[in-house]
C-alpha cells in the first residue's frame, strides 16, 4: 500500500508480490510478533465482548467473598477463577473490563496525538522559514519536561478522569510525532517525485497529504504502535499515582494502586493487574518490532 507510488516509477516487468502479502511475509517471519499479535487479539476479543466473556459484572460486590484467593490456591473457590479484590469484586471480570479501558485510552491517545502530530509536522516541514522553527521550539519546550511530570501537571489542572488521562497522554506524546513527521517529510521533499508533482501544479494541501504523507507512513505506523504501548503504561502510572481513571471503573493501573494496600496479605490482587499490563504492553511492542521489520528493514536502526 505504501510502496505503490514508488513502484509505478520502477520497472513493472519484475513481478512483485502483492504489497499485503509481502508485508505479511515480513511480519510473520518474526515469531515474537506473531505471538504478540495472537495475545493482543485475545485481549481485544475479550474487551469487545466483555459482557459475554466476563463471568460477573466488574462492579458487583460479593461481600461474603472479600479477598478470596484464586481458585487453585488454599481458600479459593471455583466461583472466582482469579480470586476477588478487597470488596469482593471478581478479579477476572475486572481485568477483562479493564482491558476495554486500557485499550480505549491507548487507542484514543494515539489517534488524538497522531492527527495533530501529522498536521503540525507537515506544516513545520513545508514552512521552514518561520512557522517550522516556531513549532519545533514549542515542541522542544514540551520535550524538555519529563513526560510523566507534564502528564501529572495536566491531570492536576483538568482533574482526574478517563478523558483527561487521554488528553494528558496525547499532549505528552505529541512532540514525538511532530518531530518524526517533520524529519521524514523533509527527506521526502527533496526527492524528485515531489518536485515533479510540484511542477505538475499540485497544490500545497495535495502535496502534503497525497504526495508526501503516504511515504512517511512506515515509520509513523511503527511509532504509533510503540506509543500505543507507552500510552497504556503511562495511563497505568497515572492510575497508580491516583490521578487516572476514577472508581469504580476497573483500570489496570488504578487496580494495582488500590491493591498495594493488600500486598502483604493477598498477592493476587497485586500480581494480576501488573502481569496483565506487562503482557499486553509486551505484546504490542513485539508487534511493533514485527511491523518495523516488515515495513522497512532500514528502520531496524531506530530504537
Amino acid at each position: 500500500m505504501t510502496t505503490q507510488v514508488q513502484m509505478s516509477a520502477e520497472d513493472k516487468a519484475l513481478a512483485y508480490p502483492s504489497p499485503l502479502k509481502e508485508f505479511w511475509q515480513g511480519f510473520s517471519y518474526n515469531k515474537g510478533a506473531v505471538m504478540g499479535l495472537v495475545f493482543l487479539a485475545v485481549v481485544v476479543v475479550a474487551a469487545l465482548f466483555a459482557p459475554w466473556v466476563a463471568p460477573y459484572n466488574p462492579i458487583d460486590q460479593y461481600r461474603d467473598f472479600m479477598l478470596t484467593p484464586p481458585s487453585w490456591a488454599d481458600g479459593g473457590t471455583a466461583k472466582f477463577l482469579l480470586g476477588t479484590d478487597e470488596i469482593g469484586r471478581d478479579m477476572l471480570s475486572r481485568l477483562i473490563y479493564g482491558a476495554r479501558l486500557s485499550l480505549l485510552i491507548g487507542l484514543s491517545a494515539v489517534l488524538s496525538s497522531l492527527i495533530p502530530g501529522i498536521i503540525l509536522g507537515l506544516l513545520a516541514a513545508f514552512y521552514p522559514k518561520v512557522l517550522g522553527p516556531l513549532i519545533m521550539r514549542v515542541m522542544d519546550v514540551m520535550m524538555a519536561l519529563p513526560s510523566l511530570l507534564l502528564a501529572i501537571a495536566i491531570v492536576a489542572i483538568l482533574g482526574p478522569s478517563m478523558l483527561n488521562t487521554i488528553i494528558a497522554i496525547s499532549v505528552v506524546s505529541l512532540p514525538g510525532y511532530v518531530r518524526l513527521v517533520r524529519a521524514s517529510a523533509m527527506t521526502e521533499l527533496n526527492r524528485d517525485y515531489v518536485t515533479a508533482a510540484r511542477v505538475a501544479g499540485a497544490g500545497t494541501l495535495r502535496l502534503m497529504f497525497v504526495t508526501v504523507l503516504p511515504n512517511c507512513m512506515a515509520p509513523l505506523i511503527v511509532h504509533a504502535t510503540m506509543s500505543f504501548s507507552s500510552a497504556i503504561l503511562d495511563a497505568a502510572a497515572l492510575g497508580f499515582l491516583g490521578m487516572g481513571v476514577q472508581p469504580p471503573s476497573a483500570e489496570w493501573g488504578a487496580m494495582l494502586s488500590s491493591a498495594r494496600d493488600y500486598i502483604e496479605r493477598a498477592w493476587w490482587v497485586v500480581s494480576w493487574p501488573g502481569l496483565t499490563i506487562l503482557l499486553s504492553v509486551l505484546a504490542i511492542n513485539l508487534i511493533g518490532d514485527g511491523l518495523r521489520d516488515a515495513l522497512d528493514p532500514k528502520l531496524k536502526r531506530a530504537a
Binding site: 460486590q61 470488596i87 472508581p247 469504580p248 488500590s258
Partner: peptide, 10 residues
C-alpha cells in the same frame, strides 16, 4: 474514602 464511596454507591 474512595472505597467507602464505592460501597455506599452500591
Amino acid at each position: 474514602a474512595k472505597l467507602m464511596a464505592e460501597m455506599i454507591q452500591s
